[in-house]
């Protein structure tokens, strides 16, 4: 396309997007970052406080716990979902009966909200109602499965529910990847008599690398935003043992009315995401673009 004069109608069409970017994204980010450098409590005030809120934030045990939890959920949930999703996709790819039906069952949790997911798992994991109670009812009086009320294990309940919610998505991505693999490769492997697991491990997994990367990116974004699920599943408890950063920010913003600390936490979260994201975004969208030109 050659350079044309500016068409105002084009900019009129882009006005909503421009307004949203300028005010709702950039403006609010500046505001949030700005407040984090003041000693605002219930209301934003303009008293500059330097890095005090950040110093306090990283001395707050609850924040450190929530960051640690984010890492635990991130690593475990992503690893388990990737493994489970991949294995399911491979299994579904073996010309099995009722593939469509099984696919539907595996993916449906992803259509559910985190609220629903959290509630139902909370009931199942509740020791006085769910699995523990049922197994005891079968006669195993000493059976214990009370992860959700134990401080050390509550966060693994979050992992469990999150895997249940997300594994189907990984399966869908992986299955699409598998279906894209050249049929000749399979034939060749059979002729060469390569053992199936070797073939999958040494040939299929490397081919599916892009699928693994996109699944990982999608899942990790979910981890940073993790809020609703924890809220209804454990409420961040017992104590604050299963708190996560997004919930920490919400609590301090609204219930605790300490917006200085809350915005410092939000800013920390923002920087973390930006650091992880910018190289990937650049590589995905803009380098690719340049190549095209």
């Amino acid at each position: 396309m050659k350079q044309r004069p500016i068409r105002w109608s084009v900019y009129a069409g882009l006005t909503p997007a421009i307004l949203i970017v300028v005010f709702a994204y950039i403006g609010t980010i500046i505001w949030t970052v700005g407040i984090s450098f003041t000693d605002s409590r219930m209301l934003p005030v303009a008293r500059f406080a330097g890095f005090n809120q950040y110093v306090r934030l990283f001395a707050t045990e609850r924040w450190l716990t929530s960051v640690q939890n984010m890492v635990i959920v991130g690593v475990l949930m992503i690893a388990i979902s990737l493994a489970l999703g991949f294995l399911l996709a491979v299994a579904l790819d073996q010309r099995i009966r009722a593939e469509g039906f099984l696919r539907t069952i595996i993916l449906y949790p992803y259509a559910m909200s985190f609220i629903v997911t959290g509630l139902v798992w909370q009931w199942i994991l509740n020791p006085t109602l769910g699995i523990e109670q049922t197994v005891r009812g079968w006669g195993f009086e000493n059976f214990r499965f009370d992860w959700i009320i134990q401080k050390e294990t509550a966060i693994y309940c979050v992992v469990l529910a999150a895997v249940w919610h997300a594994a189907g998505l990984v399966m869908a991505i992986m299955l699409a990847g598998l279906r894209g693999i050249d049929q000749d490769l399979w034939k060749a492997s059979r002729i060469d008599g390569i053992k199936p697991w070797r073939f999958y491990w040494h040939i299929v997994v490397p081919i599916l690398r892009p699928s693994f990367i996109s699944a990982t990116v999608l899942l990790s974004l979910g981890v940073v935003k993790l809020y609703d699920l924890v809220l209804v599943l454990t409420g961040g408890g017992p104590g604050f043992s299963s708190d996560v950063p997004a919930k920490f920010v919400m609590d301090y913003l609204f219930q605790r009315q300490n917006i200085g600390l809350a915005t410092a936490a939000a800013t920390t979260l923002l920087i973390t995401v930006l650091c992880a994201l910018t190289p990937w975004l650049y590589a995905e969208y803009f380098r690719a673009e340049k190549r095209k030109d």
């Binding site: 609850r62 017992p238 604050f240 009315q257």
Partner: peptide, 19 residues
Amino acid sequence: AGADMLNSLADVVVEYWAT
């Protein structure tokens, strides 16, 4: 005392109970 201090104390107390 202000809500900020009380909530911070509450965190300590809650943690104590859970541990």
